[in-house]
Design a protein around this nucleic acid. Sequence first.
DNA 1: AGTAGGATACTCGATTCAGAGTACCTTATT
DNA 2: AATAAGGTACTCTGAATCGAGTATCCTACT
Lengths: 217, 217
Amino acid sequence: MSTRNRANPLALAILICLYERPMHPYEVATTLRQRHKHESVRLNYGSLYAVFASLERRGLIVPQGTQRSGRLPERTIYALTDAGRVEAHDWLTELVSTPVKDYPEFEAALSFLPALPPDDVVSLLGERAVALEVELAEMRSTRELFAKGDLPRLFWVEVEFRERLRESELAYVRALAAEIGAGELEGMQWWRAIHDDPDGPAASQYSNIDVIEGGGA
Amino acid sequence: MSTRNRANPLALAILICLYERPMHPYEVATTLRQRHKHESVRLNYGSLYAVFASLERRGLIVPQGTQRSGRLPERTIYALTDAGRVEAHDWLTELVSTPVKDYPEFEAALSFLPALPPDDVVSLLGERAVALEVELAEMRSTRELFAKGDLPRLFWVEVEFRERLRESELAYVRALAAEIGAGELEGMQWWRAIHDDPDGPAASQYSNIDVIEGGGA
DNA sequence: AGTAGGATACTCGATTCAGAGTACCTTATT
DNA sequence: AATAAGGTACTCTGAATCGAGTATCCTACT
């Protein structure tokens, strides 16, 4: 219930897996890996057993029995409770209906951009553009594999989505690199100045100006 | 150096702040908040002092002296070392030049979509589209504020970028909702079937098929 | 049949984190 | 001058996390 408990996406993945049938932790991990969920969701298998324990504490799953193969440790099989079914449904509903603020690393990079000299930035953005093109090519071939494997689109909408986002990013990177390269970006004079002469008169001009109160509705 | 140390973006934000001049931890936090960095970077001020301590241990910053106002605890002022300057430069360079895999929450949501009934999904996507429109309107007004405040574009490229991504998301959400609503998405029959009759013959048909080996180059 | 090499199935501990908590200061009020 | 309200400057704690470690199993080769 507490939103704090919804921080770990592995927990949701587990609940949804157990929706199908009771499993033991390792089987859940294997299933998720087989279905390539780790490509769309951040899953720390390191905390697998801790997350199962926390779900049990919260009454969302119950141990159903154990099973043993060879002399490996016993495997506890867990099943979803009614509360678990409700939680999985509510969580997923919220995830689909309500946008949250994500923090893509590149957004952070952009916000610190003035700390690097403009010429360096142009070539670094060029590197990124190339890498993004390679990644997009890979994604397209993955999609072809999916299509050939007769897996209906329903099961790979997330791959399409990721592709759209990366395409937008590539377009933005190209446009920005071109603008900086052409010296057309607003603020370029100051940017050049502080990197040519770090102690020059321009150094402090903007040091405090990006203080804008309010912003947004 | 170890990539593990580059996990926390607050550390980079601190290094870049100290690039300007030595400060005490609380002053760094205040500066970052004033510059709205928390909107583009995930900054946990809860671990502020821990991160300063870790940067000092790694030799990237050094305490320069202390200062005291009233009977508040002493404030330690930290300065960047040469190693710290190098680390900040290298880290930022990597961030700009090399795309990493982010995990937007909505991508996770999409990958679990078949767990909800299709009709529900259509209306949830509709909700999301509305919320995204509101958010985009807010972002545009924030940008206008920036522009009026005479803050050069150089300092808000990250806001533009975020806007482009959200626009792509909105377009995708609308298209997907329309396709599902029209019953045109590949896999719809199966999707309808398992939600109309969870134990029916369709239930297991795809339960294992999204196992595709390889994928990507 | 014995065993080397690699994959599989967990376990453990040091580190890091988020959020709640607390003490202090400043300002406003009477 | 006393006190209340609100913000500032930290501190603490339980929980989460990552990576490294260990034990077991399977396969192939001699």
